[in-house]
Simulated assay, not measured.
Amino acid sequence: MILCIQMSLAVLCCILWLASPALLRSEFKLAYVTERNVYMCTCAQDPGFCEKMNSSECSSCRDLSSAQQSSVQKKHLTVWYTSPLNAALLLNNSEIRHLSLVQCKPADDQPVPFEYFTVRRLETLTVTYPIWKPGLSFEVTIGKDRDAAYQEEARIAVIHTSVLTGKTELKSYTVQTKVDRSGMMSFPDVFMSRTALSEMSRIFVTFLY
């Protein structure tokens, strides 16, 4: 009887040991944005830079191309894109804590018809151009120049669309400004919904260009 119990415990420990990597592994959130389609996928692991997605790695993909797009809300999100315009449209007014942008082909000469897009509560931004600028990567900690605390909910990143089309240098600066009751700031072209600000009247604004 004791031998059976010991064997059962040994088998149970072995199963838990084998299963623990899967239990500890976090899901990888990936958006794939082209000129015609926008896919939002959940993958078991990072598929790599601009590689063909393996169905066993990314078992859950939704095509958002024809759907009414709402604001994206993710803690971590990687965006592979071949269309800077559609990537900017997907990300504008989103809420993402850690964002990684990966350009999967050189940008064409078609200009993006607006200068910036905004991401709320952004903490880190990583930008990579693996196809046409291999080895060039930028990583920015948002608000580091002003010691803005990560738990500070009232923050917004204003990202110039040139970041999506290719940069040889990425710069940023952060200011703290007031927001009026309508959601307007000291910058007339930047608006933020009051619902995202809770009851706070001040906000950190980081410009990336």
Rank of each mutant, 00 (worst) to 15 (best):
L16W: 03
L136N: 04
I2T: 10
L91D: 05
T34S: 15
Q6C: 12
I131W: 01
T195Y: 08
K144D: 13
R97G: 08
A67L: 14
G143D: 09
F28W: 05
A87Q: 02
I5Y: 05
E51T: 14
R62Q: 12
S20A: 09
P21A: 01
T82Q: 03
V140I: 13
T42E: 12
M185D: 11
L12F: 14
L170M: 06
P111L: 01
L208E: 08
I203A: 05
Y150E: 12
S182T: 12
L64T: 11
L64D: 10
R194V: 12
S70N: 15
Q103W: 00
G166E: 07
M53S: 05
M53R: 10
P134Y: 00
Y173G: 11
L90D: 11
E57N: 14
E27A: 15
F138S: 05
T206S: 08
I131P: 01
N86D: 08
S137T: 11
Y150T: 15
T42G: 04
E152D: 14
I5R: 08
S71Q: 09
V190T: 00
I2G: 05
E169R: 12
L12K: 09
T165M: 08
V190A: 01
S186Q: 09
Q69M: 11
V175P: 03
K133A: 15
T206A: 06
L85A: 04
V79N: 08
V72S: 10
P188D: 13
A149Y: 03
Q68G: 10
T78H: 01
C61K: 01
G48D: 02
L85H: 07
L3A: 15
P113C: 00
L64M: 11
A10N: 07
C58T: 10
S100Q: 14
F187P: 05
T168N: 13
V205S: 03
Q151M: 04
I156R: 01
